[in-house]
């Protein structure tokens, strides 16, 4: 009985982690796009991005701990920390471990951003674009519920959300992010010279 409770917890926490992580990624992309509007200031987006990222780690920890302590799987702590060391579904679990460790690196470096400097932090933060898809593949590959209709809907929705946000960003990305500022500046200079 308690075993299956743990197993349900693992699966539930895994699904929640996927949803939260997707929200974090989408919000991160929105930060870069500088989306804002009335009643939707940008610090709301950055604040949500950060807090949801921390929450993601909590659920991810729950997902991993319940999987490890579950006597049925008998995974052991090593397989939770060393990629591809688990006897059980070696490849798919290994992907999960890698995704987890990338996320950990991203969060830790973000918390230490002030000490690392902006450029180092930024380079490491690009790992997000590896951690998220690896996590999704891990879920599709080994998720007990992966091919049930509701889990497919969740996974599909998550993939769609990130793809849309990414396309939006790519469409907007080629523009100079400061173009409007620059043109107002240039206009102001011209006005001065005309005087």
């Amino acid at each position: 009985m308690s075993n299956s409770v743990l197993w349900y917890a693992t699966r539930g926490a895994g699904a929640v982690t996927l949803i939260l992580l997707t929200a974090v990624v989408v919000l991160g992309i929105l930060t870069a796009l500088r989306v804002e509007g009335r009643g939707w200031p940008r610090f709301l987006v950055t604040g949500l991005h950060r807090n949801l990222a921390l929450m993601t780690l909590v659920f991810l920890a729950l997902h991993i701990v319940t999987a490890v302590v579950d006597p049925y799987t008998n995974l052991g702590w090593a397989s939770a920390l060393i990629p591809f060391s688990s006897y059980y579904r070696t490849f798919w679990l290994g992907l999960g471990v890698i995704s987890f460790e990338l996320l950990l690196a991203i969060v830790v470096t973000s918390l230490l951003r002030g000490y690392l400097g902006h450029n180092t932090w930024r380079v490491i933060h690009w790992l997000t674009y590896a951690a998220w898809p690896i996590g999704v593949i891990h879920g599709l590959g080994t998720g007990t519920d992966a091919w049930s209709a509701w889990m497919l809907a969740i996974t599909g929705g998550c993939i769609a959300a990130v793809v849309i946000a990414l396309l939006w960003r790519l469409a907007a990305g080629s523009r100079d992010p400061l173009s409007s500022e620059r043109s107002t500046f240039r206009a102001a200079v011209d006005r001065r010279e005309a005087r």
């Binding site: 200031p41 940008r42 610090f43 950055t46 902006h118 400061l178 500022e181």
Partner: peptide
């Protein structure tokens, strides 16, 4: 020199 004028600080 670093500041690129995104104005987030002023929002907060």
């Amino acid at each position: 020199i670093k500041c690129d004028g995104r104005g987030l600080c002023a929002e907060i």
